[in-house]
Structure formats: C-alpha cells, structure tokens
Design a protein around this nucleic acid. Sequence first.
DNA 1: TTGTATGCGTTATCAT
DNA 2: ATGATAACGCATACAA
Lengths: 336, 336
Amino acid sequence: MKKETSGVTMKDVAKEAGVALGTVSRVVNGLPVGDSYKIRVEDAIRKLDYQVNSYAQSLRTNKTNTVVLLIPNTKEPYYASLTYHINLALLKRNYRMLLCSTDYDSAMEQEYISMAQQNKVDGIIGLTYNPDLSVRENIPFISIDRCMGPGIPCVSSDNFAGGQLAAEKLADLGCRNIAFLRKGSSIDNEPNKRKAGFENGCLARGLHYEMKIMNDDEPYEEFEKFLEEHMIDGRLAFDGIFCVTDGLAYFILKILHRLGLQIPKDVQLIGFDGIRFFGDKEYVCSTIVQPVEEIARMCVSLLLEENMPEKPSLVCLPVSYACGGTTAEQGNGNSL
Amino acid sequence: MKKETSGVTMKDVAKEAGVALGTVSRVVNGLPVGDSYKIRVEDAIRKLDYQVNSYAQSLRTNKTNTVVLLIPNTKEPYYASLTYHINLALLKRNYRMLLCSTDYDSAMEQEYISMAQQNKVDGIIGLTYNPDLSVRENIPFISIDRCMGPGIPCVSSDNFAGGQLAAEKLADLGCRNIAFLRKGSSIDNEPNKRKAGFENGCLARGLHYEMKIMNDDEPYEEFEKFLEEHMIDGRLAFDGIFCVTDGLAYFILKILHRLGLQIPKDVQLIGFDGIRFFGDKEYVCSTIVQPVEEIARMCVSLLLEENMPEKPSLVCLPVSYACGGTTAEQGNGNSL
DNA sequence: TTGTATGCGTTATCAT
DNA sequence: ATGATAACGCATACAA
C-alpha cells in the first residue's frame, strides 16, 4: 500500500521487477525487449495491477486518443442514432469520445470547439449550425451534413438523390399531384438539397407539385392551415406528400387523420431519415433511409485514417427507400 | 511561430509578460496576484491566445474534470434522454463527459470501467446490467436503476409507486380486469419493482388482474398469442392493460389494432417511461412519466457535490401520470 | 506578493 | 538490449 489511491506507477513496476524504468515503458508499448525481462515486467504489472496513466502519456506524446462529438442533442432519433454509431466506431478503435450537446446554440458550439482545442483532442466530429464557426487549422475536423469550407471534409447522405427518389417513388405509386413540406434551418446545409432533388424528380416524371417551406422558428400550425386550405369536399388536393423529415411526417400524419383522411388510401406520404422507434423495428412512415451507420463509420475513418491520399471535401452516401405503411405497397400495412 | 502546433505554454506567457512562471499559474487559477502583474499576464494570454493544457493540469493535480457515462446505447428513447440531460448537467458544471455505449454487453461494461479507472476520471455514472461488476473503491460511482451494493448510491424513479399509480389510474378510469405485461431483464433492478407496485395497487382497489411476464430473450410474439387467447367473441377479456414500458405499449398497441380493438374505448392502456417522439410533443401513450431530467441532475449532484453528509444508498424520484390518448380522459384524443 | 525549483508519470534520447 | 536521464506543461511548497 503505497499511497492512498491506486497510485502504482511505472517506477513501482520497475522496482518490483528489478529493471529500469525505460524497460517497463518498452514492454508496455510493445517495443522489443529481452524475453526474460519481458516476463518479469509482465508479472510485476499483474502483481501490482498496474495501469498506465493516460494523462501523463498524453502530455508526453501529444496524443490523446480522444475525439469530441459536437451534436445538437441525443434526444432526437437521428442524432441519437448518429451518436450511438460514432461512439461505437470510436470505442472499437480504442478512442474515447467526449460528448458535447450543443442544443443548437451557436455560442455553445464555439465554446466546445475551444474546449476541444484546449484539451488537445485528436479530432472533432461536428454536426453544427453556427454559420461562422472558428475552427483551428491544426485540429482535424469532420463535419456532418454541412460543408464548412476548405480543409474540412463533410459527410452526409446523398440528400439530392433522396429527394429525387421520393418524387419518383410517389410517381411510381400513382401520385399525380404532390406536396412538398419542409421545416428546418435556413442555413446552407446538405439536407436542404432534398428540395432540389425533389423538384428535379417531379420534373423528370412530369409531376405537378406544390411546396410549403417553413423555417424552424415558424409554428407548425401553418402546415395544418396549408392542408386545410387544400381540402375540397372532404378530399385533399394532393394524392402524395413528401415531408423533409420523418419527424415532420409524423406530425403531418396526425393532421391528416384529424382531417379524416385515410393513409395511404387517400394520400400517400414519404418522410426522410429512416427513423424507427424503440429499437430496430418498423419504420415510423414510408421513408428515405439515411445510412446512419455508414455515415458514422465514414466520419471516423476520415478523421483517423492516416494514409488518406487526399481528404475529400464532400462524401455523399447512398440512401434507400423503405415502406413504412404510409405508401401503398406490399408493405406491412402499418398505417399508424 | 514557436513550434508546429499551437504549442504556447505558460512559459511563453511568462516571458511575454515579463513575469515568473508561477505568477502566470496564479493568474490562471484566480489566486491573489498584484493588479499590475495580473493585467500584464492577462494581456499576454490574450495576445498569445494561450490555453491551459488540461492534460498537464490533470497529471499534476490528479483531477481530471471528466466523468464517464456507461449506458447501453443512445438509441432507445429513455437512454437517449438520460444521456442528454446528464451531458448537459455535467457540461454546465464544466465537466467533460466520456460516453461509453455498452450495448448491454457485460464484458464491455467491465472493460469501460477499467478504462475509466485507467483514465483516472473523477467519477462514473452507470446504467449497467452486469450483475457482478468489479468497481474499485477509490473511484466514485453512481448507479442508475440498480442497487449495486454498499458505497454505491443508486438513483431511479419511484418504480413501485409508479406501478401502483398505474393500477389506481386504471381503476379510477373504470377498469375492472387488468393485464400486466412485462418484458425485460431478469436482473434485480429497480424497474422490476413496477410489478410489485402494480399488484399492490390492484389489491388495494380490489381489481382483478393477470400477468404475463417475459424475459428479454423471449420473443415478442408470445404477447400476441397471450392476447389472442383472451379474445372472446371479438372482445378482449381485459378492459385495461399496464405495460412495463412505453416501448412495449407501443408494440401492444399495434397488436390491439390488428385485433380490431378500439383504444381507449375497448381497452385502456398505460405504459411506463414517458416517452415522447421527436422532441417535447405528445406522449406515445398514456404513461407513468419518469422524471428523467431530475434523475440526471441527481446523479451529477451525488457524484460531484463535496459536502454530502452521507451518501444515500437509494434515491427514488417521484413519477407522475400523463394521458397520451390511450386512456379515456380529457386528453388530446390521440388514439394513435 | 512574487520568483524559483521540484515533481506529477510518461516517453524518448542518450550512453552503456 | 538495457539503464540512466531529460523533457512534456503545470501547480505548489518554499525562499526571497
């Protein structure tokens, strides 16, 4: 019993094994060491239950094995899932992950970036909204869903293709007149390309469409009004709706039910994200599925892979369509 | 430009300000320093954009300002919410949080605890399932939802009272014959007290009840069979159902719909947890709400508060009932 | 009040 | 191949 806490250091191990400090270090780091020495050191380590002090190690090597994740929160399903998969990918590589929930607060985003720099973490993965974030050159940064400028790779789904796919699916399912409903940040991020993709898809298929674009600070009630205004004789003017997120689709679904409409008989609905409640069960609605796990892994690879020929500025991962009962199909018939 | 990275240290600041190293340290730590010195140091800090190296600091002081959160994942809503609130509470106190998703894996739980010890974090908050976790005496540990033995405070909702409340509510709402549906870990944790509370409530109100208890590894389909077996002439033998979690309730709800039953007209349903999809909107179902934010704050307080007279062994926080449309009430009428 | 010097536990650079 | 020793950046006990 040396000190109060388990303060057993390399020095103690060296003494116990009767070798020099450097030898212990070499054993710990897997550097070449004579067999007899190696065994003695390993025995001593076991006997004393020695563990390296990662703070001393980081101080010395300037390598922290730590990555910061900047994310608005872990409550909304998409963020929660991203957090989960990034965390797992990092832990698998023996990296620790500092979680920083920013709550969409620009000041917090900046503050945590400074904190990350101060902690000299090995890198940052961030899904942020602050348009003019100051991030140092010397610390690797991977951005999710938003291009932040040169030197900062952005990883996201192929949102444009997703929007297009949604339009095409609705067309294939027999829709002729579609509404696009969007609510979100007005910042210039990747998800905002869903709209352009959607329009492109409609044009290609000769679909008529109407759009209702709302910002995050505007009330949801506007959508209800919009839909009510398009009701004629108890029927909706649209036979298809594309919502920019599953969260919005979930909300719209309730409105449609209140209006007495049958889903997917009267109106078909497609969301975006691929959210499934309570584990990997059914989808909330028919949806364009984001490859969350692949996004997570790509972020980690981009951040940690040494021999990357050239960091790409934007990596888009393929999305897919999944039936969740709000489109007419051989699906599970879950019409919520 | 001294080095490659932004390697500006206290020594640089001291030189720039023309003072001694110790003086800079004292300024940084808010210790008494002569005004003229203080100003010069602060100017130098600003000019050089100095930031303390938290690794050197931790090495020196044996204080890391870091807490580890051990949680199965961040995908399931209850865990996601806990993670969010704990993270915020920690960040607010200027603590960093290392997230460790364990995926219910006992080996991982133990591994991350060892990692935490190695990293000499200031404490651990853990929601774990490994029945015989080895956690050192010297590192503070707060357990969520499970009592882990002496010296380790456990924080949870008042699950017993919650079960009781569910039974009483159903009784008040006119139910006479209730089913209790449970699926979960067979480990001896706090949420398992919901059953005892429920039985107690039924007894007190003279309610007849039947229970279907399933373990986590058993298939969900058993519930469907159970309910089908209790259908007579298109009517369910029960007029009320208490599900041990909202997740289960969500699943049961779909079965009930498939069986052609109307909720809450034919059967009333109460879940447990207080889950709300997509931000703070409506509840998934009528439910016993866990005070997640309070649980999170309590964990952090218990872990960090210095002057705690005596660490309690179990802290139960009060739950509440909320209508989510699956019980007959003045609620919002959201019957899914 | 301020400066000086030592050590926290490691890794890395020397000799041996 | 191994042992001694000097940093890494900071806090602090002690001297001034």
